[in-house]
Structure formats: structure tokens, C-alpha cells
Design a protein around this nucleic acid. Structure first.
Lengths: 129, 129, 129, 129
DNA sequence: GTGGTCTAGACCACA
DNA sequence: GTGGTCTAGACCACC
């Protein structure tokens, strides 16, 4: 029935994120074909429709694209789109939440946040596609 | 209507967290009464039943307690319980997830994590309830 | 099995368009609730999931929004978003296709296109929400 | 890979239409040979089977004909057949749909439709095959 | 083979 | 009651 999945988040979103992250890690290059809906469904032990929802979710965000009768492919610029999506989530949601939690727990966050921002800037210079 | 709430997480959990955090920030002291279910429901523009679920959730975790006919009160030790709950969540879930995201985005996390751990230790020496 | 539907286009898209057009025609005002997934499914003689796909499609385009446990509502600005969506489709796809067909059939399109553009401009002045 | 094709409509139909329109524009005269399935497939960056379906579709409608071992040729009367097909589509489907969209967008369609009908009548007097 | 659509039916959390 | 997720299985068009 699809083990390895958290119960907190819909499975299709977890699959989508895994694929997006896989692209970011270089598992699939731009233009390359990712596993078919059915293959992925077997591999993940889930219903094909659940995989399809993940694929459609990624397609709607410009990460992959479907080509009729041939499969899903990593879109040109898809890697960068995913990185942006992830980074935006991080900056807008994770980081403020993180900072808030630190303060709440009585942990001095000033240096930490400073450090993080420095490293983010650094990472921007080491960009490679 | 209940705006200001994320759609990702149940509203009752968001309310519970706000209250717990309020206690941690000193908004309500131990032994003090927190607003009634109905008052809170009006203030948050939410169904009373939703607030009730939040209160019950907090009660089950030893943060608040109900006194029949008089309302809900911050429990003795409730503040500390909440702090522990928050800290545990932070260490076990938030921090690893945070580190993972950093790596994925190509941000060097070693110094950041080091910094965080240092500050956590520091905060432990300044403990006061 | 859902009569009244064309075979050329997915049913869920036809439903989505009907609802969008209904909003444009004033059938549902902004902030108003549209029929629940189940009600609509019964009315259209389709599977609820098919209706849900239509609703999600509209939600992704900022026309409606879901509120947990309460239903789907016409979003603020949803009517205008739908109008824009329709107008964009018209300008970018329908109109050029239309003009091309006219020419192909040996019909002089200059005056017609001119007339259309004039009327579009006119319609922009009569705007009402 | 076959770019330049819409995803909304089957590729083979898009190819068929392009060829039919090409005939109407005089790209290929009646009795002339059109490119082989393979040539066309290379040119369009598409699977030969897809081109074949397009050719068969056109053949079934009396626009082109296959001559064994020699290829596909524009049929006698094929141009006129295609024009009729296109005109019928236009009158029965495109025009009503077009009018409906105009109304929905709040564009006064009376003059436009009138203009179109006038031009269609005009075009009928200048007929030549 | 591929993606895409649809159904019927179940189950869940939320309000 | 509401939306949301998931399954199993069918059928289709397309390549």
C-alpha cells in the first residue's frame, strides 16, 4: 500500500517533492524522461493515479512536461524552477517559522540568522546548471 | 470566516499552538484563566467546536486544564511542558528537516548547525521557569 | 453517466468552464458559495471526483477557493480573473485562428477584424464588477 | 520531437489540417504528389505513423489519394472538398462558438456577425476553383 | 507502450 | 455536512 510515506502529507505531494529534489540532485537532467506513471506506481507501491497527480502537480509548476504517448520529461528550466520554488518556500515560510521558534525557545537567533543569510549569498555565487 | 489561518494544517492545531506559544511568552501565567471557548471563537472568527478541539488537545498534553463551569486554566507546569514539547519538536523534526533543505539548496550548513547547537547550550544555562 | 457533455473535451474542463461562465454571468457573486462537490455531481450526473477536478482546476486559476469543511466559494477577484482568462484565450488563440480561417476561405477579413477590435475597446469602457 | 504542435488536439489532425490548408493555398495543385510519409515525418519531427494517420484521414475525406508504390496525390476535386469541409466547420461550429464567446465577454456581436455574413456572401460571387 | 479520463466506492480529517 | 485522498479497475486516444 505504499510504505515509506509520512501520514501528515498527501502521498502525491511527497512523490512530487521527491522527484523535484531528484532533479535538483541531478538524478534526471533537463530534457530527460522520468519513469512512466505506471513504472513509478509499481516502484512506490502506489496507485498510478496517485503518481499521475504528483506529475500533474509538477507540470503545473513548470518542472516537468508530458508528451503524449511518450512520457513525462524534465522541462527546460525545470531544475531552476524547482530550485526557485524550494528557495522561495525556504525564505518565506521555513526561515521565519524557524526564527520564531528559536526566539520562543529562548535561543538567541541573531547570529544564526546572520550566518544563514551569509551562506545563502555565498551559494548564489557557486551557481551551476 | 477565520482568516489568518494556513490551509496546510488543521485550524485547531494552529489555534492550540498560538495558545501554547502565548503561555510561553507570558501572555497567560500558570493558574490563570484563558478566554472561554466562545470568546476565543469570536475573536478568531472560528467555529466554537474548532476552539474546543484545540483546548482539548492542549489539555491532553498537560498544558491547560478545564474546571467545570469555570473555564480553562493554565496548568501548573504547563509552561514547562509546552517548552519541552516545542523543544522536542524542534530537535527531532524541524532541525533535521531544516538541515536537509539547506543542503538541497546548495547552502553549506556545517557552520549554521554548529552555531545553533552552541546557542542551544547557552540557553540551557539561563534557564528560568 | 453525464449527458449534455461534448466528447471532444474532458468533462471536468467543460464543468469548469460552465462554472466560470456562470460567475461571469452573475449566477454566483464573489464570496458566495457554489454547490458542493457532491451536489454538483448529482446535478451533472457525474462522479464527484470529476467535479472535484473541475473545482481544483478553477482554484488553481484563482477563480474559486476551498474552505475546509465548508465548501467552495467564489474568490475575491475571481470574476475578473475568469474574464481575463477568457479574454486572453480569445485574443491570443481564438481571434488569430478565426482570422486565419477567414482568409483561407477567401473571405475578406480586414473590416471584420477592425470591427471586432473596435467593439472590444468599447466593451472596456462599460466595465462593471 | 515534434514541437510547434498544440497539446490540445491530436497531432495527426493538426498535420492533416496543415496539409489541407496547404492545398487550399495552392502549395500543392490537384494531381500533384505530396511529400512521402517519411519525408513529412522528418520535416515535422514526428513519428511516420502519425503522418500516416493524417494522410489516411485526408484520404477518407476525398482530399488526397494513395497510389500504390508511388505515394499520395492531391485528388481531383480535393481542393474543393477541403474548402467545403472548412466552410461547414466554420458555419456550424466556429461561428456560433465565436458569437457565444463575444457575448460572454460583453462584446456587442450584432454588427460583427452582420459584417461576417456580408463578406461570406461577397466571397461566394468571386468563386473559382 | 504512453498519458488521460472517468467511475464506484471507501476512508479520513475538518467544521 | 464539507473537502481531500486513495484504490482498483476500466476505457480511450495517441505514438
Amino acid at each position: 500500500m505504499g510504505e515509506n510515506f509520512s501520514e501528515k502529507e498527501p502521498i502525491y505531494l511527497q512523490i512530487a517533492r521527491r522527484i523535484g529534489d531528484g532533479i535538483l540532485e541531478g538524478l534526471w537532467k533537463e530534457g530527460e524522461r522520468i519513469p512512466s506513471v505506471r513504472e513509478m506506481a509499481v516502484a512506490m507501491e502506489v496507485n498510478p493515479l496517485t503518481v499521475l497527480r504528483a506529475y500533474e502537480w509538477l507540470e503545473a509548476r513548470g518542472i516537468i512536461e508530458s508528451k503524449r504517448g511518450r512520457g513525462y520529461f524534465v522541462k527546460q528550466g525545470g531544475k531552476e524552477n524547482w530550485r526557485k520554488y524550494r528557495m522561495e518556500q525556504f525564505i518565506k515560510e521555513d526561515l521565519p517559522e524557524f526564527e520564531k521558534t528559536l526566539k520562543l525557545l529562548g535561543i538567541d537567533s541573531t547570529k544564526i540568522i546572520e550566518q544563514i543569510k551569509t551562506e545563502i549569498l555565498k551559494s548564489h555565487s557557486n551557481e551551476e546548471s
